[in-house]
Design a binder for these strands. Structure first.
Lengths: 342, 342
DNA sequence: CTGAAAGCGCTTACAG
DNA sequence: CTGAAAGCGCTTACAG
């Protein structure tokens, strides 16, 4: 492999000049620049970026931590991240965790060992001790997206989870539902905690009973939504509507309803969360809360790039959501409404 | 940041010994190893892996080229790749292309610039000139998975596409279908070419007419399956069955049938390809060809790791598929069958 | 605008 | 088993 030395010899200049001509063409005379470029081409020279990185003490690499690359939600966010990272000449390392904390640690260690410049996390399920040093400072350049930490000053890009959950519930209440169940994620996660609060407080605001059996915290994949919905629908006092905090769970719930011969939406309204592509292709098509997944990705990587280039980033950005009404929701049948005392 | 030098000084040994004690503990006396480990811990020392990589002329990084990270098919394969790569201490770079050839080139360039040790491609849509040098040799360590090149000697892991397509068609023929359409990918791609051949040849084998209108080559996302199926179902002589070469296209086709009030499976059988998680959660549940996606990922990274460690890899591995019969297929109505001349 | 020289932080062949 | 020394291939402050 050709090196700067070889190119320098062929072009009749010093290695310093070769380096300059290739990396900072503007600080070199046109004449030498041309000579160097010609020599480099002739020798089929490529700079060894590893060497450059060592010298400049950077890796131009970012790791994106994600709980589960198989979930379409995450892959859409990653898509947004990738596009912009690539444009700014950063490489993106996949940091799939798959329920294994030791892997998480190994991704974070990439920073100490100079293999990454920063971290973009799509999960808040990271022990504080892993990212805070003994002085209480954040150890490394980091941004969190679609999630946030409740107690750590890590810049974050997310939606208003409380408000978005509330919008969904109010939509159902407006139509006359009052037996509204909720299939959410684990409340250790700040975003699901916020959504659950949004759900519960909205019920309270409208003076509706808050049936404890109606709130299920679980994972939110297809199968989880399916199981949770089965549980809800076999309750003595089954709900007339189920809010799911992921589209996948909602689609699982649709299947549970089919299995139990409960008609959606006539006997049961189901609404999802995320507005994944497939929410438009299931049957019935899913009413859901749109989350700008790609934009979340793009915005968060922008934040991280700001940090890496020494700028002060926005500590928190909230992106808008939108209720998308499709076929899986409608007003409840008359017998499911609250008796009105006229 | 502490370096080998600092640790060496504190431990009272040479930098060479520090390096050995940490990277090859077995070739160092227990006593010095302990001294070094203690000193390293005390100084909170982490080796600069960039420096190691430069010295050893490796990057311990692999890029996975994928056409589209948003497709669940690919993310499942990546999941399989990631798990094993991580176990072997390789990092995985995301090489999402998104219809942009210049990005492809930039990922391949990572090899010349020493930023990756090899490539795992999930697409065969790569110009030959990018990976073959002027001597006609493959330029870099590479494996292709789920796809293959028709004319390049690149090790590959894939299914038997011809046979798998055939299995699906024969299943339909056995039930009495003879008007069997096909929504496939672009035939420039070897795998879709093979599937299309499998489809067409099976029809021929059973002496069924091969209606040209019944074969549609397109992309295979939800919307593409939707559009293609609409086109097929509004044909004067509409098919009684549609084979889709992706589950997503099949789910799009299901929606098209609903829109046109064609009952699946009574009036139209639809079968998919891949057996994605969601094929079990759509309505009706999808009959499909199972592809072992995670295993494809694992096997292909194994192959690449073999190559990188100097072993001769298997040039080609074929993994089994399986027809999964669910609700979206059944025998055609009597008027859709071939007249039998008894 | 250009060159000589130092140095980024490791690893490893060589010698003992 | 250990050390002195060279070297991986760049970049950059310094001097001119």
């Amino acid at each position: 492999m050709a090196t700067v030395k070889d190119v320098a010899k062929l072009a009749g200049v010093s290695t310093a000049t070769v380096s300059r001509a290739l990396a900072n063409p503007e600080i070199v005379s046109d004449e030498t620049r041309l000579k160097v470029e010609k020599a480099a081409k002739e020798m089929d020279y490529f700079p060894n970026i590893l060497a450059r990185n060592l010298r400049k003490n950077e890796s131009r690499t970012i790791v994106v931590i994600l709980p589960n690359i198989e979930s379409p939600f995450f892959s859409d966010v990653v898509h947004g991240i990738e596009a912009l990272a690539h444009k700014h000449n950063y490489k993106l390392l996949i940091g799939d965790i798959g329920n294994d904390v030791t892997r998480l640690q190994s991704y974070l260690d990439l920073y100490e060992t100079k293999q990454i410049d920063g971290i973009l996390s799509l999960t808040a399920d990271i022990p504080e001790s892993m990212i805070i040093n003994h002085k209480g400072e954040v150890k490394l350049p980091m941004v969190i997206a679609a999630e946030y930490f409740s107690n750590l000053p890590i810049p974050t890009v997310h939606i208003d989870n409380h408000y978005s959950a509330k919008k969904g519930v109010e939509y159902l209440i407006m139509m006359g539902h009052h037996k509204i169940a909720c299939i959410s994620g684990k409340s250790q996660s700040p975003i699901f905690k916020a959504r659950i609060m949004g759900h519960v407080e909205t019920l309270k605001k409208w003076k509706l009973a808050n049936n404890e059996e109606y709130l299920i915290e679980s994972e939110l994949a297809f199968i989880d939504g399916y199981n949770a919905a089965k549980q809800l629908l076999t309750l003595k006092n089954a709900p007339s509507a189920i809010v799911c905090h992921s589209d996948e769970a909602a689609i699982g719930a649709l299947k549970a309803a089919r299995d139990l011969e409960v008609d959606v939406p006539q006997q049961l309204s189901i609404i999802g969360f995320d507005n994944l592509a497939l929410s438009e292709y299931c049957y019935p098509e899913l009413t859901t809360i749109h989350q700008p997944r790609q934009l979340i990705g793009e915005t968060s990587i922008k934040l991280l790039l700001d940090i890496l280039s020494g700028k002060k980033p926005n500590p928190e950005m909230t992106l808008p959501t939108q209720l998308i009404v499709r076929e899986s929701s409608c007003p409840p049948s008359m017998d499911q409404r609250l008796p009105t005392d006229l």
